[in-house]
Computed example of a mutant assay.
Amino acid sequence: MDAASDALSSSHPDEPHRAGLAQRLNGLRAGVLGANDGIVSTAAVVVGVAGATSESLPVLLAGTAALVGGAISMALGEYVSVASQRDTEHALIEKERRELADDPAAELEELTGLYQAQGLSRETAEKVAEELTAKDALGAHLAAELNIDRDDVVSPWYAALASAVAFTVGALLPLATMLLTPHPERIAFTFAAVLMALAVTGYLAAWIGGARRWKAVVRTLVGGTLALVATFLVGSLFGTTIG
């Protein structure tokens, strides 16, 4: 880290100016969303099965299957999504590298124009473009044109692992609650535990994205409640029909 970066980090230590920000935010996002999905999907399964039977073994089997299958599915989906993003970023970086090698003068003029478009005078924009090009031409163009940091390209493995672990942790909450509480109260306890957990994940997801916290919490709670009620009613209907 150079002197300018040191000064920036020390003057505003709570602001996201550090390298690796995209990696950390992507992992955090994948973790929060994975936990949310683990909570809702597994809770829906165990509540549905519990609505059909009072026995614990079917709940355990169905909940475990939902946990394992869901964690693998989340990890694969996150890996494919982030790998596609990474491949696109690498392709853009290589394209910019070729353009700089083929016609550096045109690229310098393009960079100057970008800074002019941001409000700088022609003279100032030229000076900024020249100084940044002299220091790191590729980095300057990636930042100004594409908002990419070549040293902070997201890792699909990191996102997949974060998603799988978070899904598993989230899924364990409704499964454990359902299995460890007595039969008459277990559905009510699971509802309560799931809704409290969803309030937390909804708040965190909004915080990461800079959105309104309580609006996201309400939206998450409404969605989770609908999922639980729907699967409980389906389970109860099948339980009544079979019985």
Rank of each mutant, 00 (worst) to 15 (best):
S11L: 15
H12I: 07
P13A: 15
D14F: 09
D14C: 05
E15F: 09
P16C: 03
A22G: 02
R24P: 00
G27F: 00
G31N: 05
G31W: 03
L33S: 05
L33H: 08
A35E: 10
D37P: 05
I39N: 08
V45P: 02
V47L: 14
G48T: 13
T53W: 06
T53V: 13
S56L: 15
L60M: 08
L60W: 04
L61A: 14
T64A: 15
A65D: 06
A66I: 08
A66H: 01
I72Q: 02
S73I: 11
S73E: 06
L76I: 14
G77W: 10
G77H: 12
V80S: 11
S81E: 08
A83W: 07
S84P: 07
R86E: 09
D87G: 12
H90V: 14
H90M: 15
H90Q: 15
E96M: 08
R97H: 14
R98M: 11
A105P: 02
A105D: 14
A106N: 13
A117R: 12
A117V: 00
L120W: 06
E126I: 04
K127Y: 05
A129G: 02
E131Y: 04
T133M: 11
A134P: 06
A134L: 09
A134S: 12
K135S: 09
D136G: 03
L142K: 01
A144R: 10
A144E: 07
A144P: 01
I148W: 01
R150M: 09
W157F: 03
W157S: 15
A159H: 04
A159N: 06
L172V: 12
L180E: 13
L180C: 07
H183C: 03
H183N: 13
A188S: 10
L198P: 03
L198E: 11
G202H: 11
Y203W: 15
Y203K: 09
G209R: 13
A211I: 00
K215H: 13
L221W: 08
G224F: 01
A227F: 05
A230L: 15
A230Y: 03
A230R: 03
T231M: 15
F232I: 06
F238E: 07
F238K: 09
G239W: 02
T241M: 04
G243Q: 04
